[in-house]
């Protein structure tokens, strides 16, 4: 991450931090939940960006780990254990364990096969969740918000919001360090030329698997937060279209930039939220066909906006820099 990305990250996080006071001034508390949702997906997106953008591992089943995190919270809640100090670490651990198993098998393949096998594993979990009648099957189940006794009260939407923001900021910082460490150098170089890395003496499989598990566990955290936000978990959280959405956020924001996917998640979810409304303005009942407009927007971004939203900022700042010089 270069200096520009660090500034962009700090500015973005500051803007996120300003959301609760601003919405209370304008009397629009609804936005706090929307922005919390955006940050939760941003968390999932940066974890995917770590292995996809920096490690070159195109995991098409990332929603699975979000689902594992969500279901861990949901199942504990179902059995009356709503202690967050138990739920959250176990949600992360469960996602890490599943990531270890899926990763260990998937990473024996590469290219299209890797994409397909990660997708297949995620779908497996999706259908497993549907078959669990005890936990609501298809319909999902309710989950009460986690209790962090004496620390914060998640039933207060502002406190919940700042917990999500703190998680996002912490994970951005951790990934930022990770990418630049010795470990990060290995992961990034594997993306460019894994064969060369092996010839240099790196046992690349171990490093890639470790990165995969780190990403899965971070995504598990986002899932635990997601269950808290909705007070509900359902198999939909793991459906392959969800994995696709997370990947679109990464691509839309800018692969391999960390802060890019945060912007991508913001853009994607805001569009998803407001596109139907805007379309209603032009034509009655057009709103439900919002995907017809969303699709072309995504295609245009992928075709012409190489580097995503992040590149947009980068280019602008670059131009200004030249102006001074």
């Amino acid at each position: 991450m270069n200096r520009r990305q660090i500034w962009l990250t700090l500015i973005t996080l500051t803007l996120f931090a300003l959301v609760p006071p601003l919405t209370s001034i304008f009397g629009q508390p609804f936005y706090v939940d929307l922005m919390a949702r955006i940050m939760i997906f941003a968390l999932a997106a940066i974890s995917l960006d770590f292995i996809l953008g920096h490690g070159g591992m195109v995991s098409f089943g990332h929603a699975a780990y979000m689902g594992i995190g969500a279901y861990t919270v949901g199942i504990f809640s179902y059995y009356g254990i709503d202690n967050g100090f138990i739920q959250f670490p176990l949600a992360i651990a469960a996602a890490a364990l599943i990531g270890l198993i899926f990763g260990a098998l998937s990473l024996r393949t590469s290219g299209v096969y890797f994409i397909m096998i990660t997708l297949a594993f995620a779908q497996m979990l999706y259908f497993l969740a549907i078959s669990l009648e005890e936990f609501g099957g298809d319909d999902g189940m309710a989950a009460s918000r986690s209790k962090f006794a004496g620390l914060i009260d998640l039933n207060d939407s502002n406190q919940f919001y700042y917990l999500v923001l703190a998680c996002l900021a912490l994970m951005l910082f951790i990934l930022h360090r990770l990418v630049q460490s010795r470990f990060g150098m290995v992961i990034r170089a594997c993306r460019t030329n894994e064969k060369r890395m092996q010839a240099l003496g790196f046992q690349t499989y171990r490093y890639k698997l470790t990165a995969f598990v780190i990403a899965a566990s971070m995504c598990g955290l986002s899932g635990a937060l997601f269950a808290n936000l909705n007070e509900f978990v359902s198999p939909d959280a793991m459906h392959w279209t969800r994995s696709g959405e997370i990947m679109i956020m990464v691509i839309m924001g800018g692969i391999g930039t960390l802060i890019g996917p945060v912007l991508g998640a913001t853009g994607f979810l805001l569009l998803e939220e407001y596109l139907p409304e805007w379309m209603e303005m032009f034509m009655t009942d057009a709103g439900e066909h919002w995907a017809i407009v969303m699709g072309p927007i995504l295609i245009v971004i992928v075709l012409f906006g190489r580097g995503g939203i992040h590149a947009l900022f980068a280019r602008k700042w670059l131009a200004r820099g030249n102006g001074h010089g």
């Binding site: 360090r177 990770l178 630049q180 460490s181 010795r182 470990f183 990060g184 150098m185 290995v186 990034r188 170089a189 460019t192 030329n193 060369r196 890395m197 240099l200 003496g201 790196f202 490093y207 470790t210």
Partner: peptide
Amino acid sequence: IFPDFTALDNVALAVQAHAGHSFRFWRPA
């Protein structure tokens, strides 16, 4: 070679390959 890395980064990576394991997550390389 690794075209995105500097020449020094490229060689440093080769040194790293034989400087023990690379499960070092925190200090910038």
